[in-house]
Design a protein around this nucleic acid. Structure first.
Lengths: 99, 99
DNA sequence: TCCCCAAGGGTGTGTTACAACCGCTCGTGG
DNA sequence: CCACGAGCGGTTGTAACACACCCTTGGGGA
């Protein structure tokens, strides 16, 4: 009965990871405006994802303006697809006998 | 950006509701042994599901032995399928542009 | 030139919510 | 009288989210 990965299960992070799994790279502002989180909140979610090893954070400079980009890691991809597998497993609990 | 129903999103309750959606009726002991939760924990989850109107609790007596059964309500079924719809929506965020 | 403000990208704090566990209870059957 | 079914209540710990604030840079106006 492997438990769902709580790092991923949180809706905000699930959205983030799923988005990242579909693009090569995404920047702070895109996620910020897409997700409707506060910057602080987004920042701490990204922090958590980075600490879990699911995303790589790339800080660059556009001239002198800091620019933060995020890339999903292999571990992140793996964890995400495991997560979806788990979700599907739960979904298919529908139909078990139990009376 | 409708938010996921947190009542359902909790893994234990997601499993419970999904199981209930596939059987006519399920009793306390079945869920207890299936899910591997403590009784107190299971009880409080069921309480939350009942308060949300997602399950109906049927307390009967087998002779004099209390027997508790749970049935998913229409509201529960609706909320659950909405939930799966939402999950699918998130899942399909995969593929949005954002560079 | 100086001033001020906005925007990018955060940090730190506090509140609120809630999951999970434990111990207790209360009734019943053996 | 002991165990079991079923559940309640309290506690603990953690986490999300908001909010307020910070620092830096770029740009506009007087």
């Amino acid at each position: 009965m492997s438990e769902l990965d709580r790092t991923i299960h949180e809706p905000a992070r699930l959205r983030i990871l799923t988005i990242l799994s579909g693009v090569d790279v995404s920047d702070f502002n895109f996620l910020f405006s897409t997700l409707g989180l506060t910057k602080g909140n987004l920042s701490s979610h990204m922090d958590k994802l980075e600490k879990a090893g699911y995303v790589e954070v790339r800080k660059s400079f556009n001239g002198r303006v800091p620019h933060t980009e995020f890339v999903i890691t292999d571990a992140g991809r793996t964890a995400l697809s495991d997560y979806w597998r788990e979700i599907d497993a739960i979904r298919s609990l529908h139909g078990k006998g139990g009376d």
